[in-house]
Design a protein around this nucleic acid. Structure first.
Lengths: 224, 224
DNA sequence: CGTTATTATGTGACATTGTCACAGACAGAA
DNA sequence: TTCTGTCTGTGACAATGTCACATAATAACG
């Protein structure tokens, strides 16, 4: 149950609701409930049965796979206004959750019970389109990852990753381990590649921090 | 336009239609058209714009990614009664086709124009569920592939692959190159791994043919 | 039937990436 | 400061991918 005062803020964060018809809005206020999830908390583990779907109104969640040796690879992230489509996937196909999802930045989420979710899919065009669209996007992005992992060399992938991050914050706070977990590699390999990039003057790195110095050179690297 | 005589056979191949309401059946007969596609023919190339979705009633289509070096990796296959959900994906998100699809075995397909497809999604519950379900399955299977490629060793993947194939035909006709294209590796690597498996007595291989000799041993390999 | 293409497989040298077992180096807490 | 946990560096080796070939098996053709 969502209170009217809260609803205003929620609506602001979830564009979907702004276009929604009155019935959906009412249903939403009745069935949904609010949850706060602190950073570091796992929302789903691989194999979990799913009983509700989360729509984030703040924070970030990372969804990743983890191998037997402990290596990780990020499949995707989702943030404000987005939802974990794998949850939807699991709900619709009656399967368990096929990866791990953890909160990276403290999150506030709107939870919708699985049954309600299923019902809305049938009842509301808007809702259905929203879910379809997300599912669609994820399939495309996961296929991208297959291609990356199967065919691109690690140094070019590191360069691409650093480039995209440098757009957000340039001296960025990140560890070698985190980069490895992002790309599905191991810490040692990333360390070596970073050292190589540093020697060529493309970046400067200190404990827990990396700064891209030569954007142009990095771009060249990322496509080579 | 589908003729009534044909329709009988088509219905037999596509379970979906057996449960369909009369209106959908009629729409189907009006909008769909029949196509024969010979083995070896590419249906879609990466980046193609999609104007129709295909439902196979016979034959097999392989969907794969291809890297710059020419290496390939199979994403999935689909056969009788199934449809290329990536096409659906491309239609719904108004994007281009993100991979290559080629016919492996001569196929007969029912083609449905993109606009019609979109319309049916909104109009028919049954149709929508069908598409949702496929999309869902593919997302899960592609995520499996990410995990495989990122974390599993090649010898175990080869063993798994041979095991699953040996269930269909045991002395199987397949080349090293084909196995490589399946798993996203290169021919030389596969050759070496096969030789190793042969020396351990798990298989026997001759030009264009492989026979699994020790199912149990192969199973052990595939999980190691 | 032999000769010639074509396709499949084998091989060795080397580059890239992953694994293991460590050793230091740094930062925050006690 | 000293301790403790986290981050980074290193060398040896294993697994995989790439390249440039050689060789072998089948198909195609006269």
């Amino acid at each position: 149950m969502i209170e009217p005062e809260q609803y205003k803020r929620i609506m602001h964060a979830i564009p979907l609701l702004q276009k929604a018809e009155a019935v959906l809005v009412r249903d939403f206020q009745l069935a949904a409930f609010f949850a706060r999830i602190p950073a570091g908390k796992d929302i789903f583990l691989e194999g979990d049965r799913v009983d509700a779907i989360a729509l984030l109104i703040s924070g970030v969640v990372r969804v990743y796979k983890i191998g037997e040796t402990g290596r990780e690879i990020t499949l995707y992230r989702f943030g404000n206004g987005q939802s974990c489509i794998l949850t939807a996937n699991a709900i619709l196909s009656q399967k368990t959750f096929p990866a791990v999802a953890t909160v990276e930045k403290d999150a506030e989420a709107i939870m919708i019970p699985a049954d309600t979710f299923r019902e809305w899919i049938h009842r509301y065009d808007l809702w259905r389109d929203y879910v379809f669209d997300l599912l669609s996007q994820r399939l495309a992005s996961v296929m991208e990852i297959v291609e990356e992992v199967a065919f691109r060399r690690m140094d070019t992938r590191v360069a691409s990753f650093l480039l995209s991050r440098s757009g957000v914050a340039n001296p960025m706070r990140i560890t070698h381990q985190e980069i490895a977990a992002e790309l599905g590699s191991s810490r040692e390999v990333i360390s070596r590649l970073l050292e190589d990039l540093a020697q060529r003057g493309l970046l400067r790195s200190s404990r827990g921090e990396i700064e891209v110095l030569d954007l142009e050179g990095m771009r060249t690297r990322s496509t080579a």
